[in-house]
């Protein structure tokens, strides 16, 4: 993978929707640059426009003001240099898991497709489920398949829209670990939208905090820890409480010290 491909630059980006004939500003003056290979978490309460931001990068929302550039080129529509994992897995129920993973592969020979599918099913730990139908998978497994589908096209940037949001707590922690492993293996940019503070810190090189109405970037926090990270370490807890304070949910002290 050539380093330097896939720089995402967002400059003075604003977006508004028309609701009942009145413009509603969803994003206001967003500025951020994400170098290739970074893992960035975006966190914010619901309605802060984080999903809209993701959809702009994906190319599903156009008509924005300002710039959204990949390698200096304006984003005007979806392209296979960007992959997406939605919150609902969106596997097509009429295709097998293997066919779903091959969904975005076009113009490849049968053999090549087979190889890519097998490779990615193995990467996400789903070998043996190739000919199963989505209705036979558990939530976590379905989300693994969706990740494999997004990666099969070799995107430069993988967008993750609350991909673990509908999983139970234990599966979720396990999948966070898996995401980290996949990211370290693929060495591509990943942008994760989440509302789970711990998840954002555990995975991100940077955590972008957004606030709502209109959506603006409130703060960008660098996470300096080495990987794999320890959720229960003091530093981890401290950053967590720092972020929670941004949402006025902070606890006075993360630990009680002897006086």
């Amino acid at each position: 993978m050539s380093i330097g491909k896939g720089i995402l630059e967002i400059k003075n980006l604003s977006k508004s929707f028309i609701v009942d004939n009145n413009p509603l500003q969803v994003l206001n003056d967003i500025n951020i640059t994400i170098p290739p290979g970074n893992f960035v978490s975006i966190i914010g309460s619901s309605g802060c426009g984080k999903t809209t931001l993701l959809r702009i990068v994906l190319g599903l929302e156009t008509n924005y003001e300002g710039d959204a550039l990949i390698d200096g080129e304006q984003i005007e529509g979806p392209g296979i240099n960007r992959g997406i994992v939605f919150q609902d897995h969106r596997l097509l129920p009429w295709l097998t898991v293997g066919e779903n993973v091959a969904f975005g592969l076009d113009g490849k020979s049968r053999k090549e497709t087979e190889v890519i599918v097998d490779e990615h099913l193995k990467l996400v730990g789903l070998n043996g489920f190739k000919s199963a139908y989505p209705c036979q998978l558990s939530g976590g497994m379905a989300q693994r398949a969706a990740i494999a589908r997004a990666l099969a096209n070799k995107p430069e940037i993988l967008l993750l829209d609350e991909p673990l949001g509908s999983l139970d707590a234990m599966t979720r922690m396990h999948m966070q670990k898996e995401l980290e492993r996949i990211w370290l293996f693929e060495k591509i940019t990943m942008i994760l939208v989440t509302h789970d503070v711990e998840e954002a810190i555990y995975l991100g090189d940077k955590v972008v905090i957004m606030s709502s109405r209109p959506g603006v970037i409130k703060k960008i926090i660098d996470i300096p820890f080495t990987r794999p990270r320890d959720r229960s370490s003091y530093e981890f807890m401290q950053i967590k409480s720092e972020i929670l304070e941004e949402f006025h949910l902070g606890v006075e002290h993360p630990f009680i010290y002897s006086i």
């Binding site: 979806p78 997406i84 939605f86 969904f103 975005g104």
Partner: peptide
């Protein structure tokens, strides 16, 4: 439909 658009 959206998924199909994403994958061109």
């Amino acid at each position: 439909r959206e998924l199909a658009r994403v994958f061109n």
